[in-house]
């Protein structure tokens, strides 16, 4: 799995490429922006081919550590396979999910602005 990180204002955009499972989940858990409780992160999942429940646990775990549980992590560009794992476990209720990364960043920026 490859993680590439960019940022837009105060928002960190973390793009995950490849497979998110028990083997690669630690890499996401130890990502600096993901761990930082104050940092709002947009997780761009466009190039994520496969995710299982351990991967899902890593993303939910990351949200747990955010000060803003409502929008600390915003998700964008999920494919159908990944979305089905969120829906089966009902975890999609915990996240705001966008089909466009720019729109997700805008949403996160407005929410961040409103809160600080």
């Amino acid at each position: 799995m490859n993680i590439t990180e960019t940022s837009n204002g105060a928002i960190a955009i973390v793009a995950i490429e490849g497979r998110l499972d028990a083997l690669s989940a630690p890499e996401l858990r130890n990502n600096r922006s993901v761990i930082d409780p104050e940092k709002t992160v947009v997780l761009n999942l466009e190039k994520l081919d496969f995710m299982n429940s351990t991967g899902l646990g890593a993303i939910v775990g990351a949200l747990n550590q955010k000060l803003q549980p409502d929008f600390g992590i915003v998700l964008s560009c999920m494919n159908d396979d990944v979305r089905s794992v969120f829906e089966i476990t009902n975890v999609q209720k915990l996240f705001h999910i966008f089909d466009d990364t720019a729109a997700a960043v805008e949403f996160a920026t407005t929410r961040q602005g409103a809160h600080t």
């Binding site: 299982n52 429940s53 351990t54 899902l56 646990g57 890593a58 939910v60 775990g61 949200l63 747990n64 549980p69 089905s84 794992v85 089966i88 476990t89 009902n90 975890v91 209720k93 915990l94």
Partner: peptide, 18 residues
């Protein structure tokens, strides 16, 4: 249950569903 932001325990539920 979803509200407690669980981190594991999904595995078997996923298998049973699909």
């Amino acid at each position: 249950d979803i509200e407690s932001y669980p981190v594991h325990g999904f595995g078997l539920k996923i298998i049973r569903e699909i």
